[in-house]
Design a protein around this nucleic acid. Sequence first.
DNA 1: CGGCAAGTTGAGCCAGGTCAACTCCGGTGG
DNA 2: CCACCGGAGTTGACCTGGCTCAACTTGCCG
Lengths: 255, 255
Amino acid sequence: MKSAEVKDKCKQCSLYSDSRLFCSKLRGDELCELSDQSRTLSMKRGDTLKAKALETWPIVAIDGGVLSMQHLLQDGRKTIAALFMRGDIIDLRDISNRNRGALIALGNVSLCRLSTQVFERIMEKNVMAQKVIWENLRDQAFRAIDHSGDIAKKQALEKLASFIFECRNRQENFSKSEIVDIPVRRIDLAEYLGMQPETVSRCFKELEKREIVEAPSLSALRIKNVPVLRRIANGDKDVTINRIDNGRIKVLKIA
Amino acid sequence: MKSAEVKDKCKQCSLYSDSRLFCSKLRGDELCELSDQSRTLSMKRGDTLKAKALETWPIVAIDGGVLSMQHLLQDGRKTIAALFMRGDIIDLRDISNRNRGALIALGNVSLCRLSTQVFERIMEKNVMAQKVIWENLRDQAFRAIDHSGDIAKKQALEKLASFIFECRNRQENFSKSEIVDIPVRRIDLAEYLGMQPETVSRCFKELEKREIVEAPSLSALRIKNVPVLRRIANGDKDVTINRIDNGRIKVLKIA
DNA sequence: CGGCAAGTTGAGCCAGGTCAACTCCGGTGG
DNA sequence: CCACCGGAGTTGACCTGGCTCAACTTGCCG
């Protein structure tokens, strides 16, 4: 079979159209089979992938949008333990029983529930595809590890700075643009970083006051001073900038 | 080749002798080749896997001991972002360049630097071995995600309770024993949980005062009341126990 | 047995959580 | 087209969990 016979539902999907992602690595017949046996799904903010459904369809690939893994504490406190985006493949085989968090959409999410059997077969046989999903899982793991490090000891402002860089790194066309897309709401951001929405708000304000960033809207951010933001993210929260006469910028530390 | 020809260095290694771990899934010739091309290493507390060495040997398998991934902030604050133990395979291919943390031993660690080439070949061809490392990486990812959730919103006492369960789950012979081995020092524990050693100490004391645990030594813990500890870990930090006349224990909430 | 790092205890303080009031904004219906 | 509504975001005032610093005890290793 040729790729000309790609199913309609796959043509538009980033997992197929982006050459770095999983489905683009499949041979025509593999893609065909996987497509036939899998199911796409659109979610909107607040929708949850139910435990029941995850038992039948434990492998989920994200085409677009942001899906969160949330943990709920007894007294109602929530945390967002991880964010999954375009290209992420979430493999929940055999763990729906454990006390895993719920998968909840933070906006419009389009995803594909992959057939476990076909997925397994492809993983065994298609080395290219195997490498892609291995890379993706490693990414997820290291992202989570980094995130743990971020929220463990960093202060609010530092966490936020780190998050801005995380968004920048995950941006589709990395493109070094200073414009960073913030794909989640303030409220979700707070839960992801382990802080209060009020604190998030205050920290954004602080960054703007120091002229390090500029927020044209709630979902976009322009970084005006990358090095300073980077230093804040790395734990030098008191840095500021100091323009030297010849126009160069020098990073100084207050106090 | 038969497994009788297993190299001496592999005979004692848990990766080979534990039937759930990677090397036990290898065919005789695969094990032989991997063994020949790989290098074992013993570390003691404080030893670091240098970036240089990780470029040549980016894949590391832990035989025993606890290896930490540490992030260092500019002003000296440290965090332990992840703990790796027996059976974990750490794949750092192509990421030494990024701002990854350092791999530092928290005690005596024995590990094996796997040959990248042989590892890759095995991953492509040996489905059983492939499944084992895929499982392991998923475990690492979900552990990190859970940990993120734990430290994001939980209070000190709750974090500690969660950590005790994490230790219990990772224990070799899970065996439902109430004796939990705490494989890291208080100081490291504090850095892993994002708190101060003083706070860790106070929290242990609190758990003992409430008669939920008992600490025969710094590295061992007896859980006297699993359900209450579980509830604390889940966010009900004010629970206590209340013995009913007939001997059953009922979990109640203070206040 | 001495020396040093790890762990503990106590007292004081501050970053950020909490609570309440308010504004902003997008969607909905008349 | 505007009035209304509800959730999201912001702002201010206050309060507390846990960080900080310093002094002390314990445990381990040579």
